[in-house]
Amino acid sequence: MRLAFAIIAALLAIAGDAHTGGTHAGRVPLPAMKAERGESCVAPAEEMRRNHMKMLFHQRDETVHEGIRTKRFSLKQCVDCHASRKTGSVLGEKGFCASCHAYAAVKIDCFECHTPMRSTQAAGAPR
């Protein structure tokens, strides 16, 4: 249910973006979307924008219930690459997750349990 809402909201956000040509966003500031580490993400940006939540959902069940801890689609790895260099977090006004989710008006509760901070021993970008 929540997933469905998230997808619909994300699609609406993308559709809205296409509509306005992505040049201006009215009252809401455009999200600060940039990778802080590594060359490229685990999939093209278009694919990530639409489907990152599916990847995370899938990985989440595998990790929690089966102990599969591949780094590629893990939330921890997302945070490690995308956390701001300044704050070390994906939340906050210019945070990678927070700014885009504020823009798309999709509430996430990942970080009520997961830390939004980059882990110190984090390595480079995932393969």
């Binding site: 921890k76 349990c113 997961h114 901070m117 882990s119």
Partner: peptide, 13 residues
């Protein structure tokens, strides 16, 4: 509410 969780050990209210 919780803050400062370990990256491998999520825990929340």
């Amino acid at each position: 509410p919780t803050t400062g969780q370990k990256p491998d050990v999520p825990r929340g209210k």
